[in-house]
């Protein structure tokens, strides 16, 4: 049994300790907002916060995060109020297919916590998530909008 705290709620899961956190979140905890894209920490669709740090959950075994606070896209809003990044995403109509956007939003939320007014160069360095629809231009605009909100 591995204890896991996701979005403030503790779960006990009877799972192979090598199982990637992503799949425990999706299949054992049942939260599917965190996406599988590559399984090798390349695309960022699986990004969650571990103790506030953006982390690619497909490449970290669940046993490594038993004592940490995990936040997924479902836990980003605070008491029903969307996070400023989520608000900016809606205001600027960022998503197209939307599949990468959970990870994108989680990565951006962590960036803004560290660096509340990122420059374009900061964004380029920090946000390396893949979007195949090509929303990068709207993502950049929305990051700046969220930063000045």
């Amino acid at each position: 049994m591995i204890k896991l705290t996701v979005n403030g709620k503790t779960h006990e899961v009877d799972v192979d300790p090598d199982t990637p956190l992503l799949w425990v979140i999706r299949e054992w905890v049942g939260l599917t907002g965190t996406k599988y894209g590559c399984g090798i920490a390349q695309c960022g669709a699986c990004t969650v916060h571990i103790d506030g740090v953006a982390t690619r959950s497909c490449s970290i075994p669940v046993s490594a995060v038993a004592n940490n606070q995990i936040t997924t896209i479902e836990g980003l809003a605070q008491s029903g109020t969307p996070h400023p990044v989520q608000k900016a995403w809606v205001a600027l109509d960022v998503p197209q297919c939307g599949y990468c956007q959970s990870g994108m939003i989680m990565a951006v939320a962590a960036l803004l916590k560290e660096n509340p007014k990122p420059t374009d160069a900061d964004i380029d360095a920090a946000i390396t998530n893949i979007c195949r629809c090509g929303t990068y231009q709207q993502v950049r605009e929305a990051i700046h909008a969220a930063a000045s909100a």
Binding site: T32, E74, W89, D93
Partner: peptide
Amino acid sequence: TVAKTNGTQ
């Protein structure tokens, strides 16, 4: 859009 920003899509 909204469902694509909060994990419910």
